[in-house]
Design a protein around this nucleic acid. Structure first.
Length: 256
DNA sequence: ATGGCTCCATACTGGAGA
């Protein structure tokens, strides 16, 4: 079973690239972030013609997440991150598919930091960790994946010293991420590739992709019940070089 | 230190992204 995550940065602008990538990689389940489209503008027909059912949580202009499935039935569990009725941003979707809970998230960017956007990021992170703790306590197969907007370590950024004050790398952000990991979650990419330099995002500016000046901010976290089933993982780095690419790269895992 | 690029909105410009 192959599961992928891809921050598309606008599903309408990205549709040709998305469909080409789906055709090439044939993932069973796909978590998408940054749809940048309201619910009624989600390209349901094109996704269906590509062979996928879909559940989506859209929003006008910004944010938006979706989960696609090629073969397995999906059952929606949670829409929107619990814990704050005033938070209307579409950043979290949770489903059960093939006996696995899959959480698709788009964690707030948080820049500029400090400031209200950074406060929102940390508050959102606290609520994510509460939900993750609930799932961990169930002792079942769970995948938490998506765009975390977190650079976990210095190894995950091309020039760490330039990012120390950024909301993606500040101590508070890394502390929240490490608190999540400390619940017992396993970083799938680092299990398969403990030492390699792996990036999932390249800025549109300054030929970042050509210089391999990237960040690793899209992650796959596996519950203990699932980690033994991990057989492979990777990033589709070449997709970043395609015409009209997203600034993010698809990330995937394979489970037995 | 700045700006470089790309997306979306109701649009010839600005906000957000990371």
């Amino acid at each position: 079973m192959k599961i992928a995550t891809y921050n598309v940065n606008g599903i309408r602008a990205r549709l040709p690239v998305l469909l080409r990538w789906l055709e090439q990689e044939s993932p069973d389940v796909v978590c998408l972030q940054e749809l940048k489209a309201p619910d009624d503008k989600f390209p349901e027909k094109e996704i269906e013609e590509a062979g996928y059912s879909a559940i989506w949580h859209g929003q006008k202009s910004w944010n938006g997440v979706a989960i696609l499935s090629r073969e397995y039935e999906m059952e929606e569990v949670v829409r929107g991150l619990p814990g704050d009725p005033d938070d209307l941003q579409s950043r979290y979707l949770e489903v059960v598919v093939n006996g696995i809970v899959i959480c698709c998230l788009y964690l707030p960017n948080g820049n500029p930091a400090p400031g209200p956007k950074f406060d929102y990021k940390l508050e959102w992170f606290d609520r994510l960790n509460l939900r993750a703790q609930e799932l961990m306590a169930l002792d079942i197969p769970v995948v938490i994946t998506g765009d975390f907007n977190v650079i976990p370590t210095e190894k995950d950024v091309y020039k760490p010293e330039r990012w120390v004050d950024d909301a993606l790398f500040r101590p508070e952000t890394r502390a929240a991420y490490h608190a999540l990991i400390a619940q017992g979650w396993n970083d799938a990419i680092r299990i398969v590739y403990p030492y390699d330099v792996i990036y999932t995002f390249y800025d549109y500016f300054r030929n970042a992709f050509g210089r391999n000046a990237g960040l690793r901010i899209d992650h796959f976290l596996l519950s203990p019940k699932l980690v033994d089933r991990l057989t492979d993982a990777g990033v589709n780095r070449d997709v970043r070089g395609w015409e009209k690419s997203s600034d993010h790269v698809p990330v995937w895992i394979a489970l037995k």
